[in-house]
Write a protein that binds this DNA or RNA. Structure first.
Lengths: 157, 157
DNA sequence: TGAGGTAGTTTGCATATCTCCACCATATCA
DNA sequence: TGATATGGTGGAGATATGCAAACTACCTCA
């Protein structure tokens, strides 16, 4: 695993560091995330929040795509999607290009509920940025946005 | 609690945006995280990885502190810590200030295993930053570091 | 000193989720 | 056309984790 050029080597170090920082962020937010999931909706299992949050962040998609993206299996995802639909948290429409499939999306109420959960539970986290400059905050938002904006080349549709 | 000054208002908007970006990042990395947890160690439950990863990121701590931080209950945490100890993945020492308590820390092997898991599974994620400038990458690493740097009593490393 | 609280561990039980497995409708390909 | 694969759904059984309670050792405070 010896790197060939000095540039590649330091680049890889930075990428490794990024991985560790993201990992630290995930660790730091895990308790918050689980609590949010538990409080998302009184008639839903926690995992429903993971589905809803993904749809909130990345928009409408097919159930199998959601399952793959959040690392859940298709049965559980299907069942939770069914429950969320019957609770009015999300809508579905037939997929245009494949009549076996459907597209699920958050309903306005579902979207609102995710937003409320994020804001309510996220307050505990805001204290960390209280002494940040607005410029740094904005920069971080922008960079994170670029990091997660990557949903065009998938599924070739 | 309505904010009064325009500065506070836009500030809050940025904080909200940050919350949504972090949420998106967590959604985007959830599948990866779960897969990493599942592959962390063949004789351990997935949740052991969450404990190990937290210790990797934030250093030695008491079991109850870990449980609180990763959002798991103390019985599961205790049981998993016991298993990891017997597998040589972490060591424990008595807490100096409280003889009821202990301090757990990753062993060199445990640390190495977490690092290996992070690097191996994280590769799928690196493609996202391939076309980033090194400056942006470095900046993101720095900002994320500041966001998660919250523990005063770290043990070097 | 004694009373009550806390840290860690263990156990029993409830529940959430995963792993197969099967099924149907549709798609894809020979 | 037929054969095989895929997307969504549902069920049965296995496992992981949460929750509650009990226990020991220890701490804290009156």
């Amino acid at each position: 695993m010896q790197t060939t050029s000095p540039g590649d080597e330091s680049r890889h170090k930075i990428e490794l560091a990024l991985g560790e920082r993201i990992s630290a962020l995930i660790s730091a937010t895990r308790a918050l995330s689980e609590r949010s999931a538990a409080h998302f909706h009184p008639h839903l299992q926690p995992a429903a929040f993971h589905i809803a949050r993904w749809l909130y962040a990345f928009g409408p998609a097919r159930p199998s795509e959601v399952a793959e993206a959040v690392g859940m299996d298709r049965s559980s995802t299907s069942s939770l999607i069914g429950k969320m639909r019957s609770l009015g948290l999300l809508d579905s429409s037939p997929a245009l290009d494949d009549r076996r499939s459907i597209i699920v999306r958050l309903s306005p109420e579902g979207r609102q509920r995710v937003a409320a959960t994020l804001e309510e539970r996220g307050k505990e986290f805001y204290t960390r940025t209280q002494d940040w400059s607005t410029a740094d905050l904005t920069r971080l938002v922008e960079l994170l946005g670029r990091l997660t904006a990557e949903r065009s080349s998938e599924t070739g549709s």
